[in-house]
Each structure stands twice: as C-alpha cells, then as structure tokens.
C-alpha cells in the first residue's frame, strides 16, 4: 500500500509518502496505527497520540475499524482545519 503523511504527522515521521508492505496480521486502520507506533523514532512520536490522528483510505475519511489492503492509498493526518475562523 501507499502511505501518505500530512502536516505535523509528516514532520514527525520525516516522510511525506512511502510504499509499505502490510505486515502479517494488519488488516484494519487500528492495527496499522499500532504497527506504525511500533516502528519507533518519529513514527512512535507521530502515532503516540492515536486520538489526534485521522485516516483516509483511498481519499475517503474512515474510522479505525475500516479495513486496509495492499493496493490501498492510506493517508495519516491531524484533524483538518480548512476554511477560515
């Protein structure tokens, strides 16, 4: 799958896009976040506060129970802040 990172998630992981081979046993967004945390370093920092991470699969907002599969585009980012005050 393709993983994308935006805003402070991108800054902490030090990566904006990468190819990720889904590890065995990772089939949902929640499991993917847990795996990201286990990668250590900037990933542990970025995903340490899982409640602050939002996820889109194939460019649609999803919840943590949503499935992920090889071939998906999965984006990780903070809550969105578009528009104006």
């Amino acid at each position: 799958m393709k993983a994308l990172y935006f805003a402070w998630v991108r800054e902490k992981t030090g990566c904006s896009v990468e190819d990720v081979t889904l590890p065995k046993g990772v089939g949902t967004v929640a499991e993917l976040i847990e795996w990201q945390m286990g990668r250590g370093g900037g990933y542990a920092e970025a995903f340490g506060d899982a409640k602050s991470i939002r996820v889109a699969v194939n460019q649609t907002h999803v919840g943590t129970a949503h499935p992920v599969a090889d071939g998906d585009e999965v984006a990780f980012f903070p809550p969105v802040t578009g528009g104006t005050p």
Binding site: F6, A7, A56, H61, A75, F77, P78, V80, T81, G82, G83
Partner: peptide, 10 residues
C-alpha cells in the same frame, strides 16, 4: 468544508 476538506494551517 471546515470539518471535511483536508487542509491544515501552519
């Protein structure tokens, strides 16, 4: 738009 569109402000 404010809660759905993927924009982030620095």
């Amino acid at each position: 738009l404010k809660t759905r569109a993927p924009f982030w402000k620095l």
